[in-house]
Design a binder for these strands. Structure first.
Lengths: 219, 219
DNA sequence: ATAATCCTCCAAATACTTATGGAATATCGT
DNA sequence: ACGATATTCCATAAGTATTTGGAGGATTAT
């Protein structure tokens, strides 16, 4: 085999990794799996896609080395092969919003203006927690909270925030978090809380980054 | 428009970035452009692809926001929109070789065992240059050397190394570099020099990383 | 064994991507 | 304006990806 053929083979392998990331469902699956392992129909339901398609796309990601599986009885749980997979996809999303005006616009249309929600850094939140000056709210679905969350956080899934306002204090700062920078759950929750008269702010990024930095967690 | 539709639109934009990286020619073009700007048929010749296809793939990268162009007379020069594009593609290639056994094998088949070539770090090379204890050789094509190279490096394109051995000292250490971690030019040159009795080593990574770190350069 | 549950595989329809040669377009120097 | 050079656009053919419904496999509980 010639050098030129070997070079093409290598670049075809690199392109396989690009192909794995070239589909919206697959990127969404990675985002959900960054919250913790999930079974196939759980993922299909959570993302709103047909089971057979979800299974097929999970296989694509698995064959690209990005996911691993574990069988437990009749269910198969998929998880990220490594935390670096999530980091890489975050970089992809950040690069897309920086270089593609259409992506930047789609992010703005979906998330709204996040800067007015006064995002709190992870260091700042750690201090606020230490001083007992904050109530932290995890607005992700209950399964994701159960799989792991910020130590001391309260679970109020985003679709229940409006109905459970009485559980939250009007006198203290509330910080809400969700899946990450491109997740709409916490921004929506903060807006709702603010319009109901609470002092609410957003956590910068979400659970995966908090977890990756080795900050205090619970499950 | 519903939240769900907006979410899909956003993830479709993210997937566009993945699609841009889902083709071997496009990844190779990014590697070459990381060495400096190039015209279209220069790129087509250098990568060994048809002009019309090269032009089409450059357009795909441009529409993904990864490349910019500059017209100079009758020629159009493409360049990376930002150095972060190269960093990102390096991360993609590293992730592929770490997670995909086929990619790891393809890299080994193409590059051989690089660790026996005693790769020199950038800090170490800077010191060796300061002490005048090294001859640095740039084995990339002449155009890439002309567009920018490590300060003081000699240009000996990889296909001329065998014919120009007399220009190199047997008494001093020689360090060769090329396009980067997955480029075969410098490893091949170092092997050739070693088998001819020279004391040769490889530079870790290549020109783009040296340049990105703000180390001494010339052009 | 049998049924229930969960997941994967398969076939088929549709849509998209890649690569090619050749025609069209843009710029420059005369 | 004209020819030379460099690039893009277009039509087309072949290949690949996406999505679906339903059949087929594993595993568990009865």
């Amino acid at each position: 085999m010639s050098d030129r053929e070997r070079k093409l083979l290598l670049y075809e392998q690199f392109a396989r990794m690009g192909k794995a990331l070239a589909n919206p469902l697959r990127l969404e699956l990675i985002d959900v799996l960054a919250q913790g392992e999930r079974s196939v129909d759980d993922l299909a339901t959570s993302c709103g896609w047909k089971l057979s398609n979800t299974s097929a796309q999970l296989k694509v990601l698995q064959h690209a080395g990005l996911l691993k599986t574990r069988r437990s009885g009749v269910k198969i749980f998929y998880r990220l092969a490594d935390p670096s997979v999530h980091d890489f996809v975050e970089t992809l999303k950040a690069l897309a919003t920086e270089t593609l005006p259409d992506a930047e616009k789609a992010a703005r249309d979906y998330l709204g203006d996040v800067s007015v929600l006064e995002p709190v850094g992870r260091g700042e939140l750690t201090e606020l927690i230490a001083r007992g000056e904050v109530v932290v709210v995890d607005v992700r679905p209950a399964e994701e909270y159960a799989a792991g969350h910020i130590a001391g956080a309260l679970s109020i899934p985003h679709d229940q925030v409006a109905a459970r306002l009485t559980e939250l204090p009007k006198t203290s700062l509330i910080v809400a978090y969700c899946r990450g920078r491109f997740c709409v759950m916490a921004p929506e929750a903060v807006r709702l809380l603010r319009s109901a008269g609470f002092d609410a702010r957003l956590l910068v990024d979400g659970w995966p980054q908090w977890h990756a930095e080795g900050l205090p967690i619970a499950s």
